[in-house]
Amino acid sequence: MSFNRKTLFGLASAGLGLTATIASADGELQLYNWTDYTSPELIEKFEEETGISVTLDTYDSGETLLAKLQSGAAGYDIAIPTHNFVPILISEGLIQPINASELDGYDRIVPNLASPWWDEGNVYSIPWHWGTTSFTVDTAVYSGNVDDYDVIFNPPEELAGQVAMFKSPDEVITMAQVALGLPFCSEDPNEMQQVLDLLMGQKPDVKTYNSDGILERLVSGDVSVHQNWNGYSLLARKEKPSLQYAFPEEGVVAWADSLVVPKGAPNYDNAITFIEFMLEPENIAIQSNSSGYANGITGSEAFMDEGLKDAAELSPPEGTPLKFIESCSPKAVELQNRVWTALLK
């Protein structure tokens, strides 16, 4: 039961925060991360090794993170944006350089995530997790081929009315764009009209647009198809083996989350300590074991759980394109916004 898990998570982090304040001899670290995306075990280990007490705050979308940093409500030492937000955070002056290449353990970052296009030279960021966005299907309900976008956008009879989508314009729209073979961040009204048509056609089969409680809805059988991230799909499969993550041949949306330090971070040195801590294979592996996502540190496999290293969710079939999302122009965002309002009005 994910709901219970979530509550426990909350209690556990609250408990951590509590014990931490008692032992806060060596300062504090304000961590701002996605919901259900921080291993309590990891935080405990960090606090024990460094004596720094960690306070965790969470958000549910990249837009929330952006708005929060923009409002000047800083006070965070570490934030974990998705890669396409990193250039925006840099150009808006919301994060500060950490010169990761000079840090201990920098050379452990895997080659294809070192010095990526969104942060050349790793001046501002190091990788946290990377993963894909596709959808999870209950094969006990539908036994056909799941690796097909029609299963979610134009569901077969068994799955009619059993679909759930994320409640986030960019995540819903990017998946529709991959399914239609269109480029991301389109500024072409005709292309966006196609996206809108696809989503409008799907809407009667959608039970809910919601990015929270995904596991619960899937495991309880409330819905049988759910837009999902690969790590979450893995966690769901552990509780209900009939759940399968789809890799349609058109490709899947891909993303990489990064550790960054917001401008005005009150504990810059502790943030750097945390980043170096996360470059240790053993530590990032604890985090992967908890969240079910791959990471970008060489040597971490040795510390990863069996069943995670070779999980189907983490290994896209040969030839399935990984489509890394991009940073969209204001014009493209405006079009996305019009599609979303038209869809839900």
């Binding site: 837009e63 929330t64 809910t208």
Partner: peptide
């Protein structure tokens, strides 16, 4: 959002949307 499935926007969510995704 939770009980209605968020399939139709309400004023509250519309305002919230402007300060997040809609920018």
């Amino acid at each position: 959002d939770l009980l209605g499935g968020g399939k139709k926007l309400m004023l509250g969510s519309l305002v919230q949307l402007q300060f997040s995704a809609a920018r």
